[in-house]
Amino acid sequence: MEESLSLLGAIRKKFVCDRVDIRTYSPLTLAFVGDCIYDLVIRTIVVERGNTAPGVLHTKKSSIVKAQAQAAQADALMEELTAEEQAVYRRGRNAHSHSAAKNASIGDYRKATGLEALYGFLYLTDQTDRLLWLIAKGLELTGQQI
């Protein structure tokens, strides 16, 4: 029987990706990946909880992945983060992006970017259990329903 790989491990194996020292990634690169992985997790939950029209799925997903919701989760999760996780979050939050969310304050956008950087870091270091725990805890602490 073939050994099971994480999604990250399977991608690295299939596409022969060299491992790079995660500390060399810019916080915005981590946020680029974190945004996607967070969106994928939330989309998966929405779809797994009911097969419905794409517009309904999009509305459910959008209420959770918008910058304001992520900023609320970031604030709620601070006491749950390790020192290393807080440092990654701060690097992402403080990074100077050349774009901004259309419907969010600068503060919320930066907090959301910090949270996405943290999620990107956890994904790229193959800490899936921790990533999913933090997402679930952030939803729980903010009372956000999917």
Rank of each mutant, 00 (worst) to 15 (best):
L5V: 00
S6H: 10
S6V: 11
L7T: 07
L8D: 02
L8I: 02
G9M: 06
A10N: 06
I11R: 02
I11T: 09
R12Q: 14
K14L: 07
F15H: 14
V16W: 00
D18K: 00
D18L: 02
V20Y: 01
I22P: 05
I22T: 10
R23L: 09
T24F: 04
T24R: 03
T24C: 07
Y25F: 15
Y25P: 05
S26N: 11
S26H: 14
L28A: 09
T29R: 07
T29C: 13
L30H: 04
L30Y: 01
A31M: 08
F32P: 00
F32T: 12
V33Y: 05
D35N: 14
D35S: 14
D35M: 14
I37S: 05
I37R: 05
L40Y: 14
L40D: 11
I42R: 02
R43T: 11
R43F: 09
T44H: 14
I45K: 09
V46D: 05
V46M: 09
V46W: 06
V47L: 11
R49I: 04
G50Q: 12
G50R: 12
T52R: 14
V56K: 09
V56Y: 03
H58Y: 07
K60D: 00
K60P: 00
S62E: 09
S63W: 00
I64T: 15
A67F: 05
A69G: 04
Q70R: 14
Q73T: 07
Q73F: 05
A74H: 00
A74V: 00
A74E: 04
D75F: 01
D75G: 08
A76F: 01
A76L: 00
M78T: 08
M78H: 11
E79K: 12
E79Y: 06
T82S: 15
T82D: 11
A83K: 12
E84S: 10
E84I: 03
A87Q: 13
A87M: 13
V88L: 02
Y89M: 11
R91H: 08
R91A: 14
G92N: 04
N94D: 15
H96C: 00
S97T: 11
S97N: 12
H98L: 11
A100H: 12
A100L: 09
K102Q: 13
K102S: 15
N103A: 05
A104C: 13
S105P: 01
S105G: 08
S105K: 01
G107Y: 02
D108C: 03
Y109W: 13
R110W: 01
R110S: 10
R110V: 01
K111W: 11
K111H: 12
A112E: 05
G114L: 07
L115K: 02
L115C: 10
E116H: 13
G120N: 04
G120A: 03
G120D: 01
G120V: 03
L122I: 06
L124R: 03
Q127R: 15
T128N: 07
D129S: 12
L131A: 04
L131Y: 02
L132V: 11
L132I: 07
L132Q: 08
L132N: 04
W133V: 06
W133A: 12
L134S: 09
I135P: 01
A136D: 15
K137L: 15
K137C: 13
E140V: 02
E140F: 09
L141K: 10
L141R: 10
L141C: 04
T142F: 08
T142R: 06
G143V: 06
Q144E: 13
Q144T: 08
I146A: 10
I146F: 15
